[in-house]
Nucleic acid binder design. Sequence first.
DNA 1: TAGCAGATCATAACACTGTTATCAAGTCTG
DNA 2: CAGACTTGATAACAGTGTTATGATCTGCTA
Lengths: 194, 194
Amino acid sequence: MVESKAKILIAASDLFSESGASGLSVRAISKRAGLSTIGIYNHFNGKQGILDALYIEGFQMVMRAIEAEDDAASPRDAVLQGLSNYIDLAARQRGHYQLIFGRGDPTYTPSSAATAVGEEAFNRLTHLVSKVLPQALSGRQKREAALQLWALAHGYVSLQDHEATELIPNAAWRDLIMTAVTTHLDALIAKHAI
Amino acid sequence: MVESKAKILIAASDLFSESGASGLSVRAISKRAGLSTIGIYNHFNGKQGILDALYIEGFQMVMRAIEAEDDAASPRDAVLQGLSNYIDLAARQRGHYQLIFGRGDPTYTPSSAATAVGEEAFNRLTHLVSKVLPQALSGRQKREAALQLWALAHGYVSLQDHEATELIPNAAWRDLIMTAVTTHLDALIAKHAI
DNA sequence: TAGCAGATCATAACACTGTTATCAAGTCTG
DNA sequence: CAGACTTGATAACAGTGTTATGATCTGCTA
């Protein structure tokens, strides 16, 4: 039955969104799906397969977030809108965000299929960013520009829920991140517009 | 015996440096220390206590790294030297770095004593950075400046061992990070030197 | 010094984890 | 219809952190 596979995936995704990776045990998933544990090994590759599916789900959400730029007046606005959506996504889907960045389950390493989706997400960001840069730039230069923005945004998001930054008020983070990202983006544009 | 406590800590630290958090089981530690598992509960607070000790060890290494600025000619050089050491530390002590940033063991949350050390590390970085800024700035502005540099450095370090950035050659990372950090630091200095 | 209280240790067990061997039942194909 | 393959469940294995039950050893007090 293909129905069982869907049931398992729904149960896993729900459980994951509710209680994060800690509540995601094989027995808990199967119990919620109304099946025995063995289905997770028939339809998926055990817990690895479940986490792979959620990892892919996470990066697909990232791609949707950074590309939701329908009403962007300029390429620059599109980048800023995408990064803003990225920040919101990280806050709204903490479990997925933590999973795709190595937190969650230390024993998990993404399969090649999963890492391919992650690479594609990076490529999409690179494509988005490259629209504000001269076309003549090499692929490497474009990737490095995209990486700069990603590192900045992810660095902030990662430090936001770290215990050492409690002195920074919670409400201030969004503005902090967006001003830093905007500054950096404009510096990138200026640097390459000589 | 205070000797047993030291034995356990050494065994845990060695085991952790060798095989990371995955190889760090209560039984493995006690076996290596030549004791039974119960000592970990008498002398520490179970595995939580062990991880707390390693977490604190990690942030102490961070503090030593960013403050090793003996031969710095200027405050600006001191900051850059500290950040350079930070990057090296993250590469050399991956286990500790991952632990203090939430990877390692998802069930672990640092105790108040541990988070205090983390906050102190952030304060030291703030102090280091504030030397390149006008004294008149508020504590909050100084913290935000330090946070910007930390987010940038940590964001890069965190993305460096992510599968999605395989297109960036491994040898390029150090230069990428340092140029980004330098650019950002100079922008900070210029912004406040009006 | 004698005796008792508390710290320190070991063994074994409990509840949980992911995984799999064994076997039963259903389904599809030649 | 018969056989092969997929799907399902039960129970067990090896691993995890933790703890209840004792035994031994240490150190303070009467």
